[in-house]
């Protein structure tokens, strides 16, 4: 990989971390990480005068995220092709893990309001899994670009 691209990718990694940080802050502020917070956010809370979320409301919020999550995952993950970890089994796990956690992160709200409140746990787990997997990919890129021996 050309040196110029390496620098761009490193800066892109910083942007990605900033995006994850802002996503984390929004989740913490608007929903909260405890199960009861997630439940009251989606199912409504009479004490807090917050209405339950509707399918159309969730879809409205999900729509840009379906594209954005996938694009971000694709761009970040495709850099792995240029690394020495390309054919590593762990990379395959990362790729599938990132897309599966993305899927559940986006679509579990529908399951929470339509199927069972138990899906709040899947929502929290998938969110943290995504927040965890992307930095792992970025650290592999960093190791590969800076030629640090593991």
């Amino acid at each position: 990989m050309h040196k110029a691209y390496k620098i761009s990718i490193l800066i892109f990694a910083l942007f990605t971390l900033l995006l994850l940080l802002s996503g984390y802050m929004i989740f913490e502020l608007k929903i909260g990480f405890e199960a009861k917070n997630v439940l009251s956010y989606y199912m409504g809370d009479a004490k807090l005068f917050t209405p339950a979320k509707t399918n159309s409301g969730i879809l409205k919020l999900s729509l840009p995220h379906i594209f954005a999550f996938a694009l971000l995952a694709m761009v970040v993950l495709h850099f792995l092709i240029f690394t020495k970890f390309k054919y590593n089994f762990f990379v395959k796990v990362l790729i599938y893990g990132a897309f599966i956690s993305t899927f559940f992160e986006i679509f579990t709200p529908f399951l929470i309001i339509n199927v069972s409140e138990l899906f709040i746990y899947l929502k929290i787990v998938s969110f943290f899994l995504y927040i965890l997997l992307i930095p792992i990919v970025l650290s592999l890129l960093f190791v590969s670009i800076t030629q640090i021996k593991l």
């Binding site: 892109f12 942007f15 990605t16 995006l19 802002s22 996503g23 929004i26 954005a68 761009v75």
Partner: peptide, 17 residues
């Protein structure tokens, strides 16, 4: 503010990159 910032980060990173 966080929503504005979040959207800005995404657009800027894609455009700049």
């Amino acid at each position: 503010f966080l929503e504005l910032w979040h959207v800005e980060i995404f657009f800027i990173m894609m455009i700049a990159f």
